[in-house]
């Protein structure tokens, strides 16, 4: 009687199958998320370029009458030929979720990055 093992092979198999199912369910959630902030520049709703923002990033992008500058981790519309200049007045974008658009020229910039629970999903104004 005492020689009967607590788990038989079939029991271990069942437990193994459930552990495998658990692993399959959780595996996708462990995939790498973005670690750095990225400036996404779009024109007419289509993404033109994505630029990783680091302390040394220096870029100037000219699109549809606008000039977008990236200075380190800060992005801004430096110039625009639009009448109201709302995009230029918007100023610096430097945090995830920040965005600015030149509606007349159909150009926009937004910053995406690592998502954590405390991060802001979207800005309202």
């Amino acid at each position: 009687m005492n020689n009967i093992p607590f788990f038989k092979k079939s029991d271990l198999l069942i437990i193994g199958i459930f552990l495998l199912i658990a692993l399959v369910i959780f595996l996708p959630t462990l995939s790498d998320s973005e670690k750095t902030l990225t400036a996404v520049i779009t024109a007419y709703g289509e993404t033109l370029t994505e630029i990783s923002l680091t302390d040394s990033t220096q870029e100037e992008i000219k699109i549809n009458g606008t000039v977008i500058k990236i200075n380190g981790k800060t992005v801004f519309f430096a110039e625009s030929n639009c009448p109201d200049k709302v995009c230029v007045k918007t100023g610096n974008l430097d945090s995830q979720g920040d965005s600015s658009a030149c509606v007349p020229n159909r150009v926009s910039v937004y910053i995406k990055g690592e998502k954590t629970e405390d991060d802001i999903d979207i800005m309202a104004y």
Binding site: E117, D118, D119, I120, D121, I122, M123, A124
Partner: peptide, 8 residues
């Protein structure tokens, strides 16, 4: 589902 909304 919880959302975090930033108000400018």
């Amino acid at each position: 589902k919880e959302w975090n909304i930033g108000i400018r």
